[in-house]
Design a protein around this nucleic acid. Structure first.
Lengths: 187, 187
DNA sequence: ATATATCTACCTATCAGTAGATAGGGAATC
DNA sequence: GATTCCCTATCTACTGATAGGTAGATATAT
């Protein structure tokens, strides 16, 4: 039997919810046990019961984020490459516009040189798995260099989030990513 | 006479050098007065003589970075649009590969929601001035939508830095940005 | 004498993390 | 049926380290 995934308790997932929001606003050093605790109405010591260290909390954060992000993408055998790419762009747009938050792994990716090793590893896994997904799309579309196209797509989207948030102009994300799916497939 | 720029003292610029490196590794919360001071061999209280607050230090950091970055780009009337774009990509490549650092404003742009207002404003100015520069290039090249092309270019490059650093594969930056100049002009 | 630049010594706030007490809810034992 | 035991989940109270920032003394150079 493989590793049994124990389901998160109510409190544990509320801790992750708050930590994720804080991390997606300001990075790894922008969430603290105290702030999380006071927001959900417990004491900071209680968080250590659910996540022994900040490192462990950071790992759980990235793991949950990655699984949810990839899980929200539809099945590749049920869509055309163009549809898949449009869906992929929409996933980023939703994170940015509806939640007004950065991509967690874009944020952690920027800070990766100062992240605890296990958190950095999980962050790398996010990008690896996204690259695989996109490479599959571009290979299905007959692209000559699927690896480059996949990397360009992720780079373009993460960068567009940063730019739009920096300029405080969320519509800029739309204008800068509108041509992405068609353009990437034409290349 | 407009605002006279007083030149930075030797110590002040060494403070900025160290702070910039730390910020470009881990963001605004990754550099501290103590760490900077101990690295350059003074006491942390002395830094406050040159930069009264961390906010002021952050502002000076972004201002110097922006001026240097744009100053390193050649004059637009002495190059073709393609040459200008290639030079722009090279500026990012140098920051990433030679110095093994993130773009300061890409980093601060990601964290912008938790940055002191004056630092956030300076960060926005970096992107504004870069957008203007790139729009000029694309307009000279006869692009139909210079604003979108300029935003796409910045997004692509900032994102490529994050991706390459996350994957610990600096050559990935090359592969993901190799087609950028020609591609952006063809669009 | 004054301006520049550094120091010592300190402050208050915050950080992640720990020890140990407490309360409640089963389940096993008597 | 009552008692004992243990597990879960929280608490209070604390530690040592670090954060940015301040006051005031000191040294040097013009």
């Amino acid at each position: 039997m493989p590793k049994t995934e124990k389901p998160l308790s109510e409190t544990a997932s509320r801790i992750l919810d708050v930590a994720e929001r804080m991390a997606r606003q300001g990075g790894y050093y922008a969430f603290s046990f105290r702030d999380i605790a006071s927001e959900i109405g417990i004491k900071s010591a209680s968080i250590h019961y659910h996540f022994p260290t900040k490192e462990a909390l950071g790992e759980a954060l990235v793991t949950r984020y990655t699984d949810r992000f990839l899980g929200a993408l539809g099945r590749l055998d049920e869509a055309t490459p163009l549809e898949s790419l449009e869906q992929y762009v929409a996933a980023y747009r939703q994170a940015l516009i509806e939640q007004d938050l950065m991509c967690l792994c874009g944020m952690f990716g920027a800070e990766i040189a100062r992240l605890p090793d296990p958190v950095a590893r999980r962050t790398r896994e996010f990008f690896e798995r996204n690259l695989v997904w996109l490479e599959t799309v571009f290979r299905a579309a007959g692209a000559t260099n699927p690896e480059a196209r996949a990397g360009e797509t992720i780079a373009h989207l993460e960068g567009a989030m940063i730019l739009a948030r920096s300029m405080n102009d969320m519509d800029l994300f739309q204008r800068v990513t509108a041509d992405l799916p068609a353009q990437a497939l034409r290349e």
